[in-house]
Amino acid sequence: SIEEEIKKAEEAKEKGKTFIHGDFVATTEELLDELLKRLRKKL
């Protein structure tokens, strides 16, 4: 679910890890923020 993806992305951000969502690879905090923004729009 979208909620689960958001939670996983937030955890990755806290730990400074890379998060992959489909073909979107978030390797930096900026990219994770962008991904979180996109996911929240889908809610």
Rank of each mutant, 00 (worst) to 15 (best):
D33R: 06
K8Y: 05
K13P: 01
K42D: 13
E10Y: 05
A12P: 00
E34R: 01
D23H: 02
I20L: 07
K7V: 06
L35A: 03
K13L: 09
L43P: 01
T28N: 10
L39R: 00
K17E: 15
E4C: 13
E29Q: 13
H21P: 12
R40V: 11
L32N: 00
K37H: 09
K37V: 10
E5S: 13
T27V: 09
K7P: 02
G16P: 00
K7A: 11
E11C: 15
E4K: 07
E29N: 10
E29A: 14
L43F: 02
E34V: 01
R40L: 10
K41Q: 14
E3I: 12
I6K: 03
T27F: 13
K13A: 05
E30M: 08
H21G: 06
I20W: 10
A9K: 04
A12K: 01
E4N: 08
F19T: 14
L43S: 03
K17W: 12
T27L: 11
E3P: 06
E11S: 07
E4G: 06
L36N: 02
G22E: 10
L36D: 04
L39A: 02
G16L: 10
E30F: 08
E14F: 07
E29S: 12
L36M: 02
D23E: 09
R38E: 13
G22W: 11
D23Y: 06
E11V: 06
K17A: 08
E4R: 08
K13T: 01
L39G: 01
K8Q: 10
F19A: 14
E14C: 15
L36W: 03
E10K: 07
L35S: 00
K42T: 11
I20R: 00
F24D: 04
F24C: 14
A12R: 03
G16S: 05
E29P: 15
A9E: 02
L31D: 14
S1L: 10
E11W: 04
K37C: 13
E30K: 11
A9I: 13
E14L: 13
K17Q: 13
A12L: 02
L39V: 01
K15Q: 12
K13D: 04
I6T: 01
S1A: 10
D33T: 03
H21E: 13
K42L: 15
F19N: 14
L32K: 00
E34T: 02
K7C: 11
I2M: 07
I2E: 01
G22S: 04
S1F: 11
D33G: 00
I2S: 06
E11T: 07
I6L: 09
K42I: 15
A26F: 10
T28R: 00
R38W: 13
A26I: 12
E29Y: 01
E4D: 11
R40W: 05
I2W: 09
D33H: 03
F19Q: 14
F24A: 02
D23M: 04
I6A: 02
G16M: 01
S1G: 10
I2D: 03
L35E: 03
K37T: 12
K13E: 03
G16I: 06
E5W: 15
R38D: 12
R40E: 08
E34K: 03
K15V: 04
G22V: 08
E30R: 08
T27A: 12
L43A: 04
E29R: 13
K7G: 05
K8D: 04
V25F: 11
A9Q: 02
L35G: 00
T18C: 15
G16F: 06
E14K: 14
E5H: 07
K7I: 07
H21K: 06
K7E: 07
K37A: 14
V25T: 05
H21M: 05
R38T: 10
A26E: 02
R38N: 11
H21C: 15
E4V: 07
V25E: 10
K13H: 04
G16V: 01
K37P: 01
K8E: 05
E34L: 09
T28M: 12
A9S: 04
K8R: 12
F19K: 14
T28L: 12
K7W: 05
L43M: 06
H21R: 01
K7Q: 11
G16A: 00
L32Q: 00
L32C: 01
T18I: 15
I20P: 14
L43C: 04
D33V: 04
E34D: 07
R38A: 14
R40I: 12
E3N: 08
E30C: 08
I20A: 07
K13Y: 07
E5A: 15
E3Y: 11
L36A: 01
E5D: 10
K17G: 15
D23V: 08
E11M: 07
K17C: 15
K37W: 00
K37Y: 00
E14T: 12
S1H: 09
K8I: 05
T28P: 02
K13S: 03
E30G: 07
K42Y: 11
S1E: 10
D33E: 11
K41I: 11
E30Y: 06
L35Y: 06
K17L: 15
E10L: 13
K17I: 13
E10A: 05
L35C: 05
L36Y: 00
R38C: 15
A12M: 04
E10P: 02
A12I: 03
T18G: 14
D23Q: 06
K37I: 10
K15R: 10
I2Y: 10
E5Q: 14
A26V: 07
E10N: 07
A9D: 02
I6R: 04
A26Q: 03
E34Y: 06
L43K: 04
L32E: 00
L36I: 15
R40Y: 13
V25C: 15
E14M: 11
I6P: 01
L32W: 07
E5Y: 12
K41Y: 00
I20D: 11
E10V: 10
G22F: 07
K8S: 06
E4M: 10
E4S: 09
F19I: 15
F19C: 15
L39Q: 00
I2T: 03
K41N: 12
A12W: 02
A12Q: 03
I6Q: 03
H21A: 06
E5M: 15
F24R: 00
T28G: 07
E3V: 11
D23R: 00
F19S: 13
